[in-house]
Design a protein around this nucleic acid. Structure first.
Lengths: 216, 216
DNA sequence: ACCCGGATTCATGTATACATTCACGCGCAA
DNA sequence: TTGCGCGTGAATGTATACATGAATCCGGGT
């Protein structure tokens, strides 16, 4: 694999996992040394991270890991609402239930294994990721999918911050199933509204979970 | 100014203006020679263009100017609908009429000069750009603004393709004024619906104007 | 004549050397 | 003591040399 690709994925993972904390400075030489590549691929990785919004220019010449304040989390969910609602609506209008029937089974199965520790959690998130992908495919709008990709990246950061109780995950699964069923039924309006409700509750849980502390 | 910045802006302008036609290959050495810089800043410019969606990887190692088919235009307007409607709604809810009163005057003045040739057209688009900026400010959501920036970039390409008759521009101005008035009145619902209508009509005009030919 | 395989070539991918600019700190003067 | 100014340094910005690998073209075989 290309060195720039490895550098990008590694840095992205570290930012999403919180190993690189919000506000942490990103120096080319430092990261190049740490990752074992030259500055050139690191520069490219930095550029992609900045385009993703995971890194921001603190001043003219210093790049830092993007902040993650309650305000920015609220803004993120506002954006996701606009995008996911539209995507869900388009998916429902498509009327191609087959992939969603498959996703539905996977979500149900994953929910039953939620007490199985870390593996259960991983499978749960994988199932949700498959739902996202199915929605993107059905929506059939590459630009929308690209915009959603960025928003979901940020959501992964939030997810790690907000420790998810099994109770919340179980309820979230129900919300997801309602969305899936609406899409299967071709009920675009319900798909959109159910998506809205899900995001609203997710945001409320996330903000409550981090308790207002700015994770800078 | 940095060479990479100049290269990016120049290439972006040329893509938006159509001088670099959709499908045109972007070679590092070629553009570096043409722009009078080394490959390094050109690489950075290419990366930004790809992040903007103005360039896409045709194969593993060749980058081309992004296509602009009727399908992608429709997809673009679908994305803009989702984003602009939300932004207009947020702006209306903010209830800070002052900047919109100013923009309103500017749009009205620009509309009256629409027969004044190229200058009138430039002023018209500048007024619309000011409206976009005012909406972004009022929405107060940096992520939403960033997503809109990308979508509006693509719209600039479409605009150049669809030769705009004065009649359409005058009508578009009316649509914009309705949006502005809704925001001034704090009528979020009307602002969103008026935005929807405007984008719908703009898309219809654009598609009719380019007559279904795929501008690849 | 057609197809397959390998060498060649050229664009990209990476590393590194050089240029530039900004920031920090030290020293001098008021 | 404090403020200004210059020098030094360390970072980024740029250029270029080198490595890699994919696409093409040619030659041999079927």
């Amino acid at each position: 694999m290309r060195a720039s690709e490895r550098a990008y994925q590694r840095l992205r993972e570290e930012i999403l996992d919180g190993e690189l904390a919000p506000g942490a400075p990103l120096g080319e030489v430092e990261q190049a040394a740490r990752l074992g590549v030259s500055r050139t691929p690191v520069r490219e990785a930095f550029a992609r991270l900045e385009a993703d919004g995971l890194a921001t220019a603190a001043s003219a010449r210093v790049l830092v890991v993007a902040e993650l304040s309650p305000e920015s989390i609220a803004a993120l969910y506002e954006l996701r609402e606009a995008l996911e609602e539209r995507a869900a609506r388009l998916a429902a209008e498509r009327r191609d239930p087959a992939p969603f029937l498959a996703v539905r089974r996977r979500i149900v199965a994953a929910t039953e294994q939620l007490d199985g520790g870390a593996d259960g959690l991983t499978e749960y998130y994988a199932a949700i990721a498959e739902l996202d992908e199915a929605v993107d495919r059905a929506a059939g709008n590459p630009l929308l999918t690209a915009a959603l990709r960025g928003a979901r990246l940020h959501s992964a950061r939030v997810r790690r911050l907000a420790r998810h109780h099994p109770a919340r995950l179980r309820r979230a699964a129900d919300e997801h199933l309602l969305i899936v069923d609406a899409i299967i039924d071709g009920d675009a309006s319900l798909a959109a509204h159910a998506t809205h409700v899900h995001l609203h509750l997710s945001l409320r849980h996330a903000l409550a979970s981090i308790g207002g502390r700015s994770v800078a």
